[in-house]
Design a protein around this nucleic acid. Structure first.
Lengths: 113, 113
DNA sequence: AACATGTATATAGAATATCTAGGTAGCGGC
DNA sequence: GCCGCTACCTAGATATTCTATATACATGTT
């Protein structure tokens, strides 16, 4: 039951970032760093395998596009299944976090301040 | 940065459960299930290796005690280092969760209801 | 022309954590 | 004696992340 925490987190964040619009790998990494004020960052060795997995699961689809400057970019776009998966995983994430936070709160005296 | 989620969660919960009093393995598993209403459960293959790691890190210490009925129990007790680690990891956990929740909230329209 | 820098994608191999699936053993009731 | 419950433990499979490295395009500098 704890495996789900690690399993889902990266892909949950990726799906969520892609919900707004298609983005390419580098852009996703920058967007995550911005949104979390540097607390969370994708390493390349995490990001690209994770994106490829999402594609294999058909939660995202990809297309190439030239960059105005620099090498071409591979964009990722949510599929219908991806959107459904995002909703499910978001809920699942909150369930897990509430369970853990509840357990932690039960352990100390700061249940309600 | 995402590795920390998986790495810390099980041991954070264990340290937290042990903050109240020394407990033995089976008891910890039951306590977690109770506290999370069955959402989170330790599998034995997760629980015992995790406890042994905590002992190797000297965050907990152990002692054996006979059971009134059934096989003897190995109790785990927080050390001073364990207490310090618990406080740090609790804070770290909240930092990570807030970062992720913040990122998720930024993605949809339900920032504040 | 050569080189450094920033952008951009990719992968192999190591490290780590969890789960699956077993094993061992004590106690009590039938 | 055997079954079920309690209680501990581990080996091997599985999955994910990180480290480190490779490739390559574009631009600016020397």
């Amino acid at each position: 039951m704890l495996r789900e925490l690690r399993k889902g987190t990266a892909s949950l964040l990726l799906l969520d970032l892609l919900a707004a619009r298609p983005m390419y790998g580098f852009e996703l990494a920058e967007a995550l760093r911005e949104r979390t004020n540097g607390v969370l960052t994708f390493k390349e060795g995490t990001l690209y395998p994770a994106l490829h997995r999402l594609e294999a699961e058909e939660l995202v689809e990809t297309f190439w596009q030239d960059s105005p400057r620099g090498p071409r970019r591979r964009y990722y776009r949510l599929t219908a299944r991806g959107r459904k998966a995002l909703a499910e995983r978001r809920e699942h994430w909150h369930t897990l976090v509430e369970a853990i936070n509840g357990a932690l709160d039960a352990g100390n005296g700061t249940v309600s301040p």
